[in-house]
């Protein structure tokens, strides 16, 4: 009986550790698989256990369509991804106000070459872990 309890406790502890682990490689792979029709550019690994928001920058080019796909635990986590211009003005984000949901990515058709900022923030997140992949097409 004691051994059975010990086994169950170990199993539960192991399940807890597994669920709290941040499998960035797996999320990166999943995000890349969503790049249908776009050429891969970059992977952003999102482990926000230490920081609430994660920011990256990239030079977007004129006449180019960019897409940022997302992968994370769908049941427990939402990720808000916002794109800002060089003056830190928000241009768009993946939150659907009407449907009150977060899209699993965002696209931006660039018509002014410049440095753009991409901000990821975890919302309603139990596990602040995920990945985003940037792709482009002409």
């Amino acid at each position: 009986m004691t051994l059975k309890r010990l086994f169950i406790s170990c199993f539960m502890l192991n399940s807890f550790i597994m669920s709290s682990e941040c499998n960035l490689e797996e999320f990166s792979k999943n995000a890349a698989q969503k790049l249908a029709g776009y050429t891969y550019l970059k992977t952003y690994k999102l482990d926000a256990s230490k920081e609430a928001e994660i920011e990256y920058s990239y030079v977007f080019s004129n006449n180019t369509q960019y897409v940022l796909t997302l992968a994370h635990e769908l049941e427990t986590t939402d990720i808000l991804v916002s794109i800002y211009d060089n003056n830190r003005k928000e241009l768009c984000n993946n939150y659907d106000k009407k449907g009150k949901k977060y899209f699993q990515g965002i696209g931006y058709s660039c018509s002014a070459t410049g440095i753009y900022y991409v901000m990821f923030s975890f919302k309603n997140a139990k596990n602040k872990c995920g990945a985003s992949v940037l792709g482009f097409k002409k």
Binding site: N62, F103, G107, S111
Partner: peptide, 26 residues
């Protein structure tokens, strides 16, 4: 040269695609 146009959003494979207002032409 800089000019502006109307911005628009279309949905492509379940992802919103934004087109910016600002247009820069070299």
């Amino acid at each position: 040269k800089e000019h502006t146009r109307e911005s628009k959003v279309i949905e492509e494979d379940g992802i919103p695609m934004y087109q910016d207002k600002k247009v820069l032409t070299v």
